[in-house]
């Protein structure tokens, strides 16, 4: 496995054990940049508009905008530093490592020949499974958003090694716009929640609705 993919696996696993929201955001940012680097290595054609859209999505949206905007939001809410992405106990840690092993076993079934493709699929599958673990472990909106973004990153990595010429430029632009739009909506919704994600007493229940 290449050092790049090992690094990617590292930034996916380590924030699960370093239980602060800042480390989760740094992890997300590193994932964006490292997936962009992997994308560039797989398709180094800088004259292709497709490549620029892929790199723009990975670097600007996933690597910079998502973590920075979440950081600003959480800083303004003066959140406590600690935020466990998975339950802090031996069972969850074992499950997390077990999922990484399961991802490697699954990719060995899907890609029989050993090599870069199998390693890429292993890391991407691990990213998707760990994203689901975070989603399943979290009850706070912020944690769930981090889980969803982890899942999205895993899918982006999964798509890298495959044939990308089945899409048109229009569909590519559409995909990037959807990721950016989803992020914007998450931020808009998160702003309305209290710091611990609990709901304040509901007002406006008796107002007329459509």
């Amino acid at each position: 496995m290449s050092p790049l993919l090992m690094g990617l696996l590292g930034v996916m696993v380590v924030p699960l054990f370093v239980a602060t929201w800042r480390s989760s955001l740094i992890g997300l940012s590193c994932q964006g940049f490292l997936i962009a680097w992997a994308a560039y290595r797989l398709s180094p054609d800088l004259y292709s508009v497709d490549t620029w859209f892929t790199l723009g999505d990975l670097v600007l949206v996933r690597g910079l905008a998502a973590p920075l905007l979440l950081y600003r939001l959480l800083s303004s809410q003066k959140r406590a530093a600690r935020h466990d992405m998975i339950a802090p106990n031996l069972l969850s840690w074992t499950v997390a490592l077990g999922l990484v092993l399961a991802a490697f076993n699954l990719s060995a079934t899907l890609v029989p020949s050993d090599g870069d493709q199998r390693a890429l699929i292993s890391v991407a599958t691990a990213a998707v499974l760990l994203g689901f673990l975070v989603l399943a472990s979290q009850s706070t909106p912020f944690g769930q958003v981090v889980g969803a973004l982890r899942l999205e990153n895993g899918i982006a990595l999964f798509e890298l090694g495959g044939e990308r010429h089945h899409g048109t430029l229009l569909t590519h632009v559409g995909q990037v716009a959807i990721v950016a739009g989803t992020l914007a909506l998450y931020l808009w919704l998160l702003r309305g929640f209290s710091v611990d994600g609990s709901l304040p007493p509901s007002a406006g229940q008796d107002e007329p609705t459509l």
Binding site: L135, P141, Q144, V145, A148, T182, L185, Y186, L189, L190, G192, F193, L199, P200, S202, A203, G204, Q205, E207, T209
Partner: peptide, 17 residues
């Protein structure tokens, strides 16, 4: 999302998630 209703905001969040 309905103005003033936090439960509706939570429902919208879950829908999007």
């Amino acid at each position: 999302v309905r103005p003033g209703s936090e439960t509706a905001r939570r429902a919208a969040f879950r829908y999007l998630l």
